[in-house]
Design a protein around this nucleic acid. Sequence first.
DNA 1: GTGGTCTAGACCACC
DNA 2: GTGGTCTAGACCACC
Lengths: 133, 133, 133, 133
Amino acid sequence: MWFRVDPRASTPVYLQLVEGVREQVARGLLEPGDRLPSVRELAAEMELNHNTVAKAYLELERDRVIEVVRGRGTFIADVRPPHNRPERVEKLKDTMRHLLIDAHYLQMGDEDLIDLWRQVLQEWTLEKERGEP
Amino acid sequence: MWFRVDPRASTPVYLQLVEGVREQVARGLLEPGDRLPSVRELAAEMELNHNTVAKAYLELERDRVIEVVRGRGTFIADVRPPHNRPERVEKLKDTMRHLLIDAHYLQMGDEDLIDLWRQVLQEWTLEKERGEP
Amino acid sequence: MWFRVDPRASTPVYLQLVEGVREQVARGLLEPGDRLPSVRELAAEMELNHNTVAKAYLELERDRVIEVVRGRGTFIADVRPPHNRPERVEKLKDTMRHLLIDAHYLQMGDEDLIDLWRQVLQEWTLEKERGEP
Amino acid sequence: MWFRVDPRASTPVYLQLVEGVREQVARGLLEPGDRLPSVRELAAEMELNHNTVAKAYLELERDRVIEVVRGRGTFIADVRPPHNRPERVEKLKDTMRHLLIDAHYLQMGDEDLIDLWRQVLQEWTLEKERGEP
DNA sequence: GTGGTCTAGACCACC
DNA sequence: GTGGTCTAGACCACC
């Protein structure tokens, strides 16, 4: 696919796949309706066991990131509002608070943190535009 | 102490303690040299086992957040520049990227994300000022 | 495992375990990728509580000596250059200085100290070779 | 005295004093028969509480590093063979083994370790000669 | 089956 | 009084 996977990393390979697809979608490089390679195609292409890929697809389907249509293939699903939105927004805020704490211990001021955000956002949109020229 | 712990949460209690102290320090509510309650005091106060508190203190000491002087007590350490700064900044950026992915699946646009940041920052500084009037 | 632990020694048992593993690795008797016994296996084998072994494994993981893959097992990690190298080299030099002080109070001259080094090195390489014939 | 003490370090000040004196003796900067300042003199000079200095002297006396002659003063003692020599030599060898392990994790080869020794020894003898010109 | 967490309770060293 | 260690035993998550 369009991203790499590290079989020696501590995160299981199938989770790296899951994260990879989610990221492609968030970046707009994969859009609702786009077709994913079949489990076996992707396994061959990335030199992975097809069970690993299947496990990733199962997880992605459970999270409604993809839709599997028997006999036709696997497609990126429409983004739908999640059930437990407030709870998940709260989690997001919690992550932000963690960022502030970590920044303190990295002796980064507010300015430095904003700079970092700028960097990340810039890289993010750059790659996004590269994908949809 | 000055924060709560939820024994039913998925994050282990001892890590909630660790995060709690780190947050107080980042917020300026705890300052270098301040003394923490003893392991057993805190355990009694929060109705936890002393081992749980000891585990948290051990972790905080390893991260150089606190300094433990055996037989005398536990104190907030000076903030020192971390050794592996580049690696840890990279981790921060990674967290930010994850934030962007999660936001996408919560159907939050850039504006919404910025709004959320504003909220978090405001709460953060409010509580900080409340601590140092 | 392939080394003993003395519950009556002043160094805590869990640290003896940590040191034991680190030594096996430094000696080349354990190599990156090798699997360690499970926490409970090792505990049973060495007649220790599983918590003690778990504490040792946790410490080893923090020091990046081993990698723990939850639910699958524990493996020797690749040796990676440490972050705070200069500081740790300084610590090594400090240990050497202490060695010189202790030697003085044992009335050992420079020659005696060198002799002792020779002994230690010889035992070290002997056991190393026994491990990789 | 001829060395510094860091009141904010995690090692208690009185132990820093003990180590400092032991080091001066090992270095030959203090010799048997040399007189140490009185507890109160030293306390004034180093801006320490006299109890702290007294505790250090007590410890040094117990270790037979110094001799206190009531009414006459405090003197560096002759170095005498310790009772438990074999045991302490074994400890020395253990420290050496630890050095080898630490060196491995700092990815230092045998050559690097020998280089480090040379450095330490050179500094050691340089300061020694500076003390006895 | 894997490691991780937590409580309860006991014992230890501090030099 | 301070933190540290250890055992015994229970429960949990792994997605």
